[in-house]
Write a protein that binds this DNA or RNA. Structure first.
Lengths: 218, 218
DNA sequence: AATATTATTTAGATGAGTCTAAAAAAGCTT
DNA sequence: AAGCTTTTTTAGACTCATCTAAATAATATT
């Protein structure tokens, strides 16, 4: 079993590996964890001793197979708890993160197995992010930003890039929700603003909005 | 907010205060926490500085009003999570304790408020122990051991004294569950064994069993 | 290539929570 | 009440996770 801190570092490295495929830099990790580079170095050494990461001085870190499995398991727990909070306890999607950050560290295989069943094996969390299954497999779909679509194209809203409460509340206010079909009626070439169709209602959105909404096409 | 360790000490002091109404001894607390007396002394000093307990050297500890409220809140969370695990996730009542020990430390007022509602404001946990309400009030009912009842008397099974997996599994095997009406048909004066009626079925139980089952009369 | 800048690591300190060993206080015996 | 036993506290050390400050390595600039 790993400590809360170790699990949080693994998760952070996992997320940063997308941007740093050759190795996550100490500074990037320090930024992500809101801590000092020296603390990161200390922790990386511990993770390295436990075979969770591959580490060479001044070269950044990469997760080992074991480290990646552990990180994915924590992410799975985080996202399942988010579904629980929204679907069962009525939390809004901008209220779940902080609590899920705590719940994701609860250690019980049976708990997660039964929670998954209780929630009916959800594939995505309330923000549209995929939930790894018990073997660590993610669903991967052709996810694009709404901003990348052209006039006449359409797709299902599956997630957000910016998950700040402000943005999520903006979406709620305008009845933009996950799973919703969005059709682009007009696209202004000057400022990239769009006129979209949402369940029959029309809505004008700016490029700031469309650049933060993920859409599943096909 | 208090640390996991601090919360566990408060809970332990709360439970021990029933047996040590004049002050919980350092050794008793060390035993309960499976730690050393010296560690207990250290922790008591911290709790005392935070006004959670009243402490005089060599006199044992007592919870302050604030300390008791904190302990009761943790117990409330523990028992609500136990109900969740059994009622919603299908855990057996002997499987819940360890996981609830972890879940009870999750910090979120909204989470507990909504969980309570989701579970329909339960008054007792799966072992029959009362769940404090959001103000810290316990239900108190006239709880007696089954062994104290006489032939012809009856009551509802509301809890267990021994909550070991072995005992709980014995109860499951013999279809003895919380909320069940138990009528004493015969009581053997020699060994205190009983013949009881459970939902129309008759069952012979020894004094060891009847001394570990709590019954609500009236 | 030498120098300046930035990134990273090392060294040493801190606080929470624990431990062992030893000292001190309290409570029993007789 | 003097001595013995048990309980409790103190003193000092350890681990984990963090910090600041200083040293070192890597990278960029001229």
């Amino acid at each position: 079993m790993f400590s809360l801190s170790e699990e949080n570092y693994l998760k952070a490295i996992f997320h940063l590996e997308r941007s740093y495929p050759t190795g996550v830099s100490t500074n990037a990790l320090a930024e992500e964890m809101s801590t000092k580079a020296s603390s990161v170095t200390d922790m990386i050494k511990r993770l390295s001793e436990k075979k969770l990461v591959a580490y060479k001085k001044y070269q950044g870190v990469k997760l080992s197979k074991f480290g990646r499995e552990t990180a994915v398991e924590v992410i799975r727990k985080h996202r399942l708890w988010e579904v629980f909070l929204v679907d069962k306890l009525g939390f809004a999607w901008d209220e779940v993160h902080e609590v899920a950050e705590q719940l994701e560290h609860i250690k019980s295989d049976k708990l997660i197995k039964e929670l998954d069943r209780f929630l009916d094996f959800p594939k995505r969390d309330p923000h549209g992010d995929p939930i790894p299954d018990s073997k660590g497999n993610f669903v991967t779909s052709n996810k694009v930003l709404l901003a990348e679509l052209k006039k006449g194209e359409s797709g299902i809203c599956i997630g957000v890039k910016d998950s700040s409460p402000e943005f999520l509340q903006y979406l709620d206010k305008n009845n933009i929700a996950l799973g919703q079909l969005i059709v682009i009626l007009e696209k202004e070439s000057f400022d990239q603003s769009m006129l979209i169709n949402l369940n029959g209602k029309e809505l004008k959105i700016s490029n700031v909005i469309s650049s933060n909404l993920y859409i599943k096409t096909s």
